[in-house]
Structure formats: C-alpha cells, structure tokens
C-alpha cells in the first residue's frame, strides 16, 4: 500500500477547507498513511455480490404531515451568529 503524498494531503485539506501549517502537513502525512493502510484491509474481501448498507434499519419513506409550524424567532436564529446585518449573516466578500 502506497503512502499518501504531501501533495495528496494538501489536496484533501483543500477539499475539506482546512488550512494546515507545514508541521501539520508532515505530521498528518505520516498519520493518515498509517490510518489508510489499516483501513485498506476492507479491500481484502470479495464482496461483489453483497449490496451496500447506508443505514442499519430498513426504513423507507418516513412521511410527516405537511403542516406549517412556527420556526425560531429571528433573534434566536442569529443569537450565535459571529456577524449579523439585519436579517442576514454577514461574511467577508466571496
């Protein structure tokens, strides 16, 4: 099993929107390689005929009545917001 490269760590971190310091990249390169090596074990099995499980219960179509209900008041919705502008969350420019 190939070890994960420095570029792959940076690629995955970018996909996950994680900024990493140089030290972190080195540390995670080592640790993620160990973890991937351990989890790659799943590839040993021949499971072509086995369907995947996404959810442990056989629930289908959990319907709810489509009736309006009150939602949280806006001041509560914004209570934990880092920044607010009227009825909007404010962020730096995209």
């Amino acid at each position: 099993m190939a070890r994960i490269t420095r570029d792959e760590v940076l690629h995955v971190a970018r996909l996950a929107r994680l900024e990493l310091s140089d030290d972190e990249v080195s540390k995670f390169q080592e640790q993620l390689s160990d973890i991937l090596e351990a989890v790659s074990k799943v590839a040993e099995l021949d499971l072509a005929d086995v369907p995947p499980t996404a959810h442990p219960l056989a629930i289908e179509n959990a319907w709810a009545d489509d009736v309006p209900r009150p939602c949280l008041p806006l001041d509560e919705v914004f209570a934990n917001a880092p920044d607010r502008d009227g009825d909007y969350f404010r962020t730096p420019p995209a």
């Binding site: 989890v39 790659s40 799943v42 590839a43 099995l45 499971l47 086995v50 369907p51 995947p52 499980t53 996404a54």
Partner: peptide, 11 residues
C-alpha cells in the same frame, strides 16, 4: 474505500 466499506457493513 467508502463503497467497499458499505459492503463490509452489510456482511
């Protein structure tokens, strides 16, 4: 990875 793990989960 993920697809295979889901099959292992069934097993």
């Amino acid at each position: 990875y993920y697809g295979t793990a889901q099959r292992v989960r069934t097993a």
